[in-house]
């Protein structure tokens, strides 16, 4: 007699299954914990930061860590701990809005043109190629320099440029799915186009888009902090890790603590997102390493 160990188990929703799978992997557990930690920190830091982030105290300038200022102070005498705790808020806000928007518009266009196919699709892909061939920083800087920094410019700019590679991915996924027999079967039954897209195509393309979104998020954060570092992102005195590193770099030889704290903040967030993306991709059965950055 056989006792089945799997089939009698209670059924879980797909979300739960995927979530469980992610948490069962060390990378997923560490990654998700880091991401959650940073999100919580972004929400709570204004109330837990020990000092005002813009409070300047010239007597503290570049002072090393002490019992009052655990991580020391920067070149304007501001408390580094408070600034580090709050340094991810802007980045998380901007990328947290821009990533889903980018995936949505890129995904929408990609699926649409993947379905339409033919000449129109060919032309679109050339345009996408053309955009991808320009360095990201050039595209973004031109807009930022023209229209100014600030969330109002950064979010649309990031959304636009980061949606373009998504078009490619969504289009390829669409091509894969519409060639499969279950889509043929739905067509042969006579379902409407909308119903085929909604029921057969979307649920399958969404997996790919979710992984894509997680990856885009980490790349967008890289881009955002690079912009800040170059001085085109967040405007002072708002604390931001990229900007803090850029500011503290000059005093690195005698006040290295000013660099190290924001480095840890920024890196741990991006690593967290990346580890989660890895685990998500594995849980959904998509090989992430095969994807090249664009």
């Amino acid at each position: 007699m056989t006792v089945s160990s799997t089939s009698h188990q209670q059924e879980h929703g797909r979300f739960m299954t995927v979530m469980k799978d992610i948490l069962a992997r060390p990378s997923g557990l560490i990654g998700l914990t880091l991401v959650l930690f940073h999100i919580l920190l972004a929400l709570l830091s204004p109330s837990i930061a020990p000092y005002d982030f813009k409070l300047q105290n010239s007597s503290l300038m570049l002072s090393p860590p002490s019992s009052e200022h655990w991580l020391g102070a920067d070149h304007l005498g501001r408390d580094i701990l408070s600034r580090t705790l709050m340094g991810g808020r802007e980045a998380l806000l901007v990328t947290g809005i821009a990533t889903p928007l980018a995936v949505i518009w890129g995904g929408f266009i990609g699926i649409l043109f993947g379905l339409v196919g033919g000449r129109v699709d060919e032309v679109l892909m050339r345009i996408v190629d053309a955009f991808l061939s320009l360095p990201w920083i050039l595209k973004m800087l031109v807009l930022i320099v023209t229209f100014g920094t600030g969330i109002g410019v950064l979010i649309p700019t990031l959304t636009f440029f980061y949606g373009i590679p998504v078009i490619r991915v969504a289009r390829a996924a669409t091509h894969d799915i519409i060639a499969r027999d279950f889509v043929w079967a739905a067509k042969a039954r006579g379902h409407s186009r909308i119903s085929i897209i909604w029921r057969e195509l979307l649920p399958n393309v969404l997996d790919t888009l979710m992984v894509e979104g997680a990856m885009r998020w980490s790349w967008m954060l890289l881009a955002f902090s690079s912009l800040s570092f170059l001085g085109f992102g967040v405007s002072p005195p708002i604390p931001d890790w990229g900007l803090m590193i850029s500011d503290a770099r000059g005093f690195m030889s005698f006040a290295p603590w000013g660099v190290i704290a924001p480095v840890i903040g920024l890196s741990s967030l991006i690593i967290g997102i990346n580890l989660s993306a890895d685990a998500l991709a594995k849980a959904l059965g998509i090989d992430r390493a095969q994807k090249a950055p664009m």
Binding site: R14, D181, F182, W184, A185, A188, R199, N204
Partner: peptide, 22 residues
């Protein structure tokens, strides 16, 4: 639609003909 209902098809490989997400 009336004709469509009358003709149905079953494919070779059920892995490919059933939507994995349904």
């Amino acid at each position: 639609a009336a004709y469509l209902r009358q003709v149905q098809i079953i494919f070779q490989n059920p892995d490919d003909s059933l939507n994995p997400r349904h």
